[in-house]
Write a protein that binds this DNA or RNA. Structure first.
Lengths: 136, 136
DNA sequence: TTTTTATGGTTTCCTCTGGAAACCAGTTCC
DNA sequence: GGAACTGGTTTCCAGAGGAAACCATAAAAA
């Protein structure tokens, strides 16, 4: 509806897409969709995130209204993160992505092997002779 | 199935997710899902991509078996890109992402404004008194 | 004739982000 | 007296991304 279009460079929706289309964001929101987690729990679950990036991401997600941050006055301070109702509406779309990765990984690996092994043939690249249509 | 898990750092599915969870990849595949496009057509449609990044992405997507590249021996060479059957299985999951961005953009913008205007209050941050559970 | 436009890229340069690791404050465990 | 836990911030460096130039070729425009 309206004039929003992610393909336009300055559209706010583009900013949102840039936030979501990030490997760490997908993984963090995926874990939080299962249960609330604390900072270091998240860090261990999402293998490979640095502390810096994780805290940056959580801050941005909180600002976007996708993640909720609660601090408890325990001995070492306890901070718990969980999804907001808005963040929950992302669970299905994002898990569709990770699901796709896990179900089609074999096809992708096969394609990569074929591509790599056909390297020599592409060096003698053959272009199709007939022009498809004019382009001006 | 099996032992694939995107949350493990060295899992091949993680590599695939890293390819998909990229703003340019989402936009490129989104346009190609509508119709085959040539290089410069894509460049104009996906506003903001540099030529370098676009060619890098198309090469990787071709290697992953998601995109098909065909060259025609026209006067200036014509190169056409379109989705493979495997790439087509990504159309629904990816358009779910862009659709989310366009339908929830208002909520996100509102959340950002609230977050920014409540900046002063968070400087005097109040932690919840009761500890939720022990953590060791 | 010279300039401009188009094709599809590659290469160079520079900035900005991401990752690794150190550091910080406070308390409990050994 | 350290070591380890909590949740981060800061520093430093390498690598990725964006802007722009460059490449070859040909048609169209001036």
């Amino acid at each position: 509806m309206y004039e929003y279009d992610v393909y336009e460079q300055r559209c706010p929706t583009r900013m949102v897409l840039e936030r979501l289309a990030d490997k760490w964001v997908v993984l963090v929101l995926g874990r939080l969709s299962e249960q609330p987690l604390r900072f270091n729990q998240l860090r261990r679950e999402v293998q490979g995130v640095s502390q810096k990036v994780l805290s940056q991401i959580l801050k941005k997600l909180e600002r976007d209204g996708l993640v909720n941050r609660r601090a408890f006055a325990t001995v070492p301070v306890t901070v718990e993160y969980d999804l907001t109702p808005l963040g929950r509406t992302l669970t299905a779309p994002l898990s569709a992505l990770t699901d796709w990765a896990e179900t089609h990984i074999e096809s992708v690996l096969t394609a990569q092997q074929q591509y790599d092994s056909a390297q020599g043939e592409r060096d003698a690249e053959e272009v199709s002779p007939p022009p498809p249509r004019n382009h001006g």
